[in-house]
Design a protein around this nucleic acid. Sequence first.
DNA 1: GACACGTGGAG
DNA 2: TCTCCAAGTGT
Length: 363
Amino acid sequence: MDQTAPATIDTRPLLDWYDRNARKLPWRVGPGDRKLGVVPDPYHVWLSEIMLQQTTVAAVGPYFHAFLRRWPELADLAAAKTDDVMAAWAGLGYYSRARNLKKCAEVLAAEHGGKFPETEAGLLSLPGIGPYTAAAISAIAFDRPATVVDGNVERVVARLFAIDTPLPDAKPELKRLAATLTPSTRPGDFAQGMMDLGATICTPTRPACALCPFLGSCKAQSEDQPDRFPVKGAKTPKPTRKGAAFVCRRKDGAILLTRRPPKGLLGGMAEVPTTAWTADFDPDGALDAAPFSANWRQATGPVRHVFTHFRLELDVYAAEIGKAPAPDGHWWEPAATLDEAALPTVMRKVIAHAFEDALKPKR
DNA sequence: GACACGTGGAG
DNA sequence: TCTCCAAGTGT
């Protein structure tokens, strides 16, 4: 690897650009506000950074507001019930984030006097906080000179230096180059500026190089092929798994639910009873896995859902029954509170499909 | 280091 | 319909 090339890129234009173009985000203290003495709330910075992991700004907004409305302070979240946190997170995905969020709040309350550490090392030791988030909180909340590297920064740096190494192998080199750019003054604004730049100008496709503060010092742009970087490794195709799900509605409208194991896919979330999800699912034997015998009717067509590493097709069976005890490990979720249950999106799709097909009121 | 881990929007 | 992706972390 070429270690000799010094970073000669002037980063002052990036801060100037950020002063003029910073995105207005609910959890952000803008460059103008900071100059008036307003400092970010570390709790808000932390909550937003966890939610933003692999998740779009648009998706995070409503969840961020809902969490702060319900748990205004870190101590409130530390004292919350884990299932309430899981339910409030439902729909946002990557549910281990919610479990670690709650765990992190408890650790801070119990062992750190309810305050966040200001250093990367201190933050890195906490649940759910990895290298990116530790650097982001240290830089954004405490304005410490940490090198913040997310997907945006990787893209910007890969283009600035025209790095040919494919991701993820290029990550160490990109981090090293990013560190050479990080200024000692306003490191938090620099980090946010780099991420804003990646989100709005240095975009994955069709970057708006004419508007870029690095125009003139970007190697990829000078070679007239900015969107060739970063180079990506080959991606593997997604296999398909199949199974069946059972939506059982009691006469009063309650739905039979159970809890998934705390770890793994959709860990700790609620679900309707299902078969295992496998590549060799046998549809003819599906009813053997039903929670009890009933007049099960199959809805038309499966529910399709795409996870990170596989596609899922679930046949949906529905039944209506009178009073019946919930089997071990199951419970009847009242119709009135179904919306607030810790049901992941795939399960909401299953229940909605049953309601609009097999459980439709008969004419 | 490789893989598991969700979801919804854009092109 | 399909691919890519969005402020990554844990194991």
